[in-house]
């Protein structure tokens, strides 16, 4: 093959879809400049600002009770929202990928809804339903249940905003894998639960981890929806992103950027783990990457 090729005149580019050197260089430069300007520079600024007055000022931002409370609230919220979405995501994608039922397309569309709705609207929906002037407001007040301006509201808004992550990743994966392996397990005498645990779950484990990672990053970083339902009560209903905003509005830049650096750090770790998963288990993540 290669012997024949050497006898022929070499084409200008290695392939017909490859551009010449100048165009290629230009495209790469544009991409790099763009990334530097809009991604790297802001990220560096966060850390530069956070450490502008040294380590002590940086650490002082985390000794504040309000900051600690915000960290705690963010962790609690994520600890509830992520497992909830994990269960919901698996259940929804299982139903969509492995069964035929009426309303399936509607369910798929609804799962995508949080991606297309502005987070502020998502938060507002809960205020309109659970707020004191809302649909269920009088009943909730009567029974002394507080949802809006409290943890339940923050968790609900976070769940709403993050629920597509797991389902969206798993649906194509499960659809591609089909049901033959589960059927094989059932004919061998396994119960439905046993088949799920030993066959379905191992087949989706890396896709699941990947989506949980992204879901968690979004749950901890969500601002808009949470901002509407939280009420910004310092030390009580402020999550990390809200705390950053409050500090910033008070011109407390060092503390603000210090807390922000925590979120930026979370993003970097997520990005690193995500790349690691993509590199190591590409075949298991992509629906088309099945080995046979």
């Amino acid at each position: 093959m290669s012997e024949i090729a050497t006898d022929l005149p070499r084409p200008q580019a290695a392939s017909v879809v490859t551009e010449g050197g100048l165009v290629r260089g230009l495209l790469v430069t544009v991409a790099i400049v763009f990334l530097a300007l809009f991604l790297v520079l802001p990220l560096v600024t966060v850390f530069v600002q956070a450490f502008a007055k040294g380590w002590d000022a940086y650490l002082a931002a985390f000794r504040e009770p309000d900051a600690l409370s915000a960290i705690r609230l963010t962790l609690i919220t994520a600890a509830i929202a992520v497992p909830f979405n994990l269960v919901f995501g698996i259940a929804a994608s299982w139903a969509i990928a492995k069964f035929e039922f009426t309303g399936k397309n509607l369910l798929v569309t609804l799962i995508d809804l949080p991606f297309s709705v502005s987070p502020v609207v998502s938060g507002l929906i809960y205020v309109l339903v659970f707020g004191s002037q809302g649909l269920l407001g009088p009943w909730l007040i009567e029974h002394d249940i507080q949802i809006i301006f409290a943890l339940p509201g923050i968790v609900l808004a976070t769940i709403f905003v993050t629920f597509p992550f797991v389902a969206r990743q798993l649906i194509p994966l499960m659809q591609e894998q089909g049901t033959a392996e589960e059927e094989a397990a059932l004919t061998l005498g396994a119960s439905g639960w046993h088949a799920f645990r030993t066959v379905t779950l191992p087949n989706i484990r890396w896709g699941l981890l990947y989506s949980v990672l992204l879901c968690n990053a979004r749950a901890m970083g969500e601002f808009g929806a949470v901002s509407v339902v939280s009420g910004h009560i310092r030390g009580l209903t402020n999550t990390l992103p809200l705390h950053v905003e409050i500090l910033y509005n008070e011109y407390n830049f060092v503390a603000s950027f210090a807390v922000a650096s925590l979120l930026a750090g979370l993003a970097l770790v997520t990005l690193g783990l995500k790349s690691l998963l993509e590199w190591r288990y590409a075949g298991d993540l992509a629906a088309s990457g099945r080995r046979h």
């Binding site: 033959a180 392996e181 059927e183 094989a184 397990a185 004919t187 030993t198 066959v199 087949n203 046979h292």
Partner: peptide, 10 residues
């Protein structure tokens, strides 16, 4: 049951 595409647990 033996499936056409084996359905082995990979």
């Amino acid at each position: 049951f033996v499936f056409q595409h084996y359905a082995l647990f990979k």
